[in-house]
Design a protein around this nucleic acid. Structure first.
Lengths: 344, 344
DNA sequence: TAAGTCAACGAAAACGTTTACGTGACGCCA
DNA sequence: TGGCGTCACGTAAACGTTTTCGTTGACTTA
C-alpha cells in the first residue's frame, strides 16, 4: 500500500502492458528468457510445439513487445533506417520518403527522417547522430559533399544514395532514374513538337541529377543541330528552386522575346518560372512551353499546364529495401516517363 | 594476421571512430567510465577541470558519441520522438513535420516519422512499435480513434495531438489553431465580399478540425442571416481530399448554377474543386470564389487564385517541443490568418 | 590532533536483449 | 548395456550506458 506500483495489489488486470519485459513473459510461460527469445525470433525448431504455444499465449496476454533498446544494444544494430533528405519542402522528396516509409514498415523497420537543408554541416551532424542510433542503413536523399560522408564511406558504413549519386564516389549504392537519358528524352519531347529554341533553368551543379539532366539536354539538342547557347542555361546561386525559376523567367523576359521552350531541372523551378511568366501577361502564343522534372504529385491538380518527366515515386521504397538487404545490385535504375500536359 | 579486426595490428590511426565506446574514452583519458559519463552529461562539478579537459580531449580524438541504445536501455527512454501523421501526401502535414524535425533537432531529439494513412489499425501498430522504441513522446498529427490509443491514454503515455484533438478525450494535450474561429473568419471573409450563397466541401467528420471549421462556418452564416442549407455541405466517404473536392464541384455543377462561394475544409479539397471548375470552362464571372484551409506553402506559386486560412507552419515545432517538456499548458492555440488572393 | 566535511573519483549493479555453451533426457545402434 | 547423437531447454555472459554507493585524500574546525 505504499504506492510503489500498485499494479499487482490493485484491481488492475494482469495485462498492464507497460514495461513488460521478456522476464515477465518467461515467468508467466514457466520457461527461461532464452526460450522466449527463441520463440519471438522464430528460431526454427528450438522449442517444442507446446512450449511455443505457451510462450505465444503469455506474450499475447501480457502484450509483450521486445524492447528496441535491449535488442539494439545486444546485436549492435537497431531497426531504424535513416533518411536524410536535402529538402523536405519539396513534395517530390516527401513522396519518396513516404514510399520508403511504407516499404520499411513492411519489413519491420522504422524510418527516422532528417532534413539536411542541403547543408554539409547539418548532413554531417545527422550522419553522426544516426550512427549513434545504430541505424541499419542511412539513405541520403540528395547528398551533399561533406567530411563525415567520406569518413563513413571509408569505414564501410551502409549508405544508400537516392536521386543524387554519391559526391566523389560513383560506385556507392545508388537508386534513381537515368538522368542523362531523361534529359535526352526531355529534349526529344520538345524537338518532336518543333521546338528548337529553348532555355534551361536549373539548380546548383553539385547535384549529379542536375548535371546529368543538363548533359542529356545539351547533347540531344546539339545532335539535332540546335545547340543551346551557354547563356540560355540559367541559375541563381544560393536560391531555392522556386526562386531560381522565377528569376530565370524574369531574366528571359528582360533580355528579349522568351524562347519557345523552357526546360526546368525540377518542377519546383517550373512553378517559379510559370509564376513570373503569368505575371508578365504574355499573349497566349508567346508563352514558352514548360517542361519540368519529377512530376510533382500535385501537378494534375494545380499545374495541368506542366509537362514533366515523371519519376516512379512508389518504386523507391522497394528499391531502398532491396538495397539494404544487400542482395541487390549496387545500382538500381528506375524507369522514368514523360507526361505530356498540353498548355491551355 | 587472422583478419579478426586488424584495427590494432594494422597501421590505422587510433582514431578509428567505429564502435568507440565509453570504455575506450575512459582508457585513453585514464579515468573510469563513470567519470566519462559525468563529463558527457555535464554533471556540474563532479570532476576537476583538468580531468574534464582530459576526457574532452579523448572524446574529440576518438570521435566518441554515446550509444543511443545503451543510453535508452539504462534510462528507459530514448531520444526519439515519433510523429504519426495521417497523410504524408498532404504538404501541410509534411510542412508541420519538417518544422517539428527542426525544433526537435535543436533539443538533441530525433524524429521518427510514420504515416498512418488515417487507418486505425496502422495507427495502433505504430503506437506499439514506437513505444517499443521507448520514444520520449508520440505526436499524433491527425489522430484517428483506435483501441491502442485509448489504452495508451489510460496508461499515461506521453501523447501530443496536433491539428485534430484527441478522439474521445478533449483534455489530452493539443496543438493547433482555433478551428471554430477560423471557420467563422472564413465565413466573415466571404460575407465581407458580399458573398452569401456558398457551399462547403469537407472531409470525413471524424476529424475535430473539420468538425470545428464547419461549425464555425455554419454559425457565422446563420448569424448573418444567410444560413447554409444542409444540402450545401458536400463530402465523399472514403475518398482522399483531392477527389472530395473534385466530386463536390462536379455535384454543384450538376445540380444547377454553382454558388458564389465554395469553402473547402482543406486546400487539397480546393485543388480538386478548382480542377473540376476549370474543366467546366465556366465564364469568368460564374466561377465561385474559392476559400481553403491550411494555406499550402505552394499556393503563392501554383494556386494564386486560392484564398486560404493560413496556419503557422513554423510555429508547430516549438509548440511540440514545449509540450514535450511538459512545462507547457496542455493546450497551445496557434494564430491563424486569412490570406486573400483575388481571383484572376 | 581528532573528528568531520567535502570534492573527486572508482566499483559495480542494472536496464532488456541475444546467443554461446552446458546439461539433462531420450532414442538408437552395435 | 555402453556409447553416441539429438532435442529441448536453462545458465550466464555480453552489449554500452547511467547512477548509486563507497572510498580515498585534502581540508576545515573544535
Amino acid at each position: 500500500m505504499t504506492g510503489k506500483t500498485g499494479l499487482s495489489r490493485c484491481g488492475r488486470p494482469a495485462t498492464a502492458d507497460r514495461g513488460v519485459s521478456i522476464r515477465a513473459v518467461a515467468a508467466r510461460a514457466q520457461v527461461s528468457i532464452a526460450t522466449v527469445s527463441r520463440v519471438v525470433n522464430g528460431l526454427p525448431n528450438m522449442a517444442s510445439p507446446e512450449t511455443v504455444a505457451r510462450v505465444r499465449a503469455a506474450i499475447a496476454e501480457l502484450g509483450y513487445r521486445p524492447s528496441s533498446a535491449g535488442r539494439s544494444l545486444r546485436q549492435r544494430e537497431s531497426r531504424l533506417v535513416a533518411v536524410i533528405a536535402a529538402n523536405l519542402a519539396n513534395p517530390a522528396m516527401t513522396a519518396i520518403s513516404a514510399s520508403v516509409e511504407v516499404a520499411l514498415r513492411s519489413r519491420g523497420l522504422v524510418l527516422a527522417l532528417c532534413d539536411s537543408h542541403d547543408q554539409a554541416e547539418l548532413q554531417d551532424e545527422y550522419l553522426l547522430e544516426m550512427r549513434a542510433h545504430l541505424v541499419r542503413a542511412t539513405v541520403l536523399l540528395g547528398a551533399v559533399a561533406s567530411p563525415k560522408l567520406v569518413a563513413m564511406i571509408e569505414t564501410g558504413e551502409p549508405l544508400v544514395f537516392v536521386n543524387r549519386r554519391c559526391p566523389g564516389d560513383d560506385d556507392q549504392p545508388f537508386i534513381g532514374i537515368d538522368n542523362r537519358q531523361a534529359g535526352r528524352d526531355a529534349a526529344a519531347f520538345l524537338l518532336a513538337k518543333g521546338i528548337r529554341d529553348v532555355a534551361v533553368a536549373h539548380g546548383h551543379l553539385a547535384s549529379s541529377a542536375t548535371i546529368d539532366r543538363i548533359a542529356g539536354i545539351r547533347e540531344a539538342f546539339a545532335e539535332a543541330g540546335a545547340p543551346v547557347p551557354p547563356e540560355r542555361f540559367l541559375t541563381t546561386q544560393g536560391a531555392e528552386h522556386l526562386e531560381i525559376g522565377y528569376r530565370a523567367a524574369d531574366h528571359l523576359l528582360a533580355v528579349g522575346r522568351p524562347p519557345a521552350g523552357l526546360i526546368c531541372a525540377s518542377d519546383m523551378i517550373a512553378f517559379g518560372a510559370h509564376r513570373r511568366l503569368i505575371e508578365a501577361g504574355l499573349a497566349p502564343g508567346a508563352m514558352p512551353r514548360l517542361l519540368g522534372f519529377d512530376d510533382n504529385p500535385l501537378n494534375p491538380w494545380v499545374a495541368p499546364w506542366l509537362s514533366s518527366v515523371r519519376i516512379p515515386y512508389q518504386a523507391y521504397g522497394d528499391a531502398v529495401v532491396r538495397m539494404i538487404d544487400a542482395d541487390a545490385p549496387r545500382r538500381i535504375i528506375l524507369a522514368h516517363q514523360i507526361v505530356d500536359r498540353p498548355p491551355p
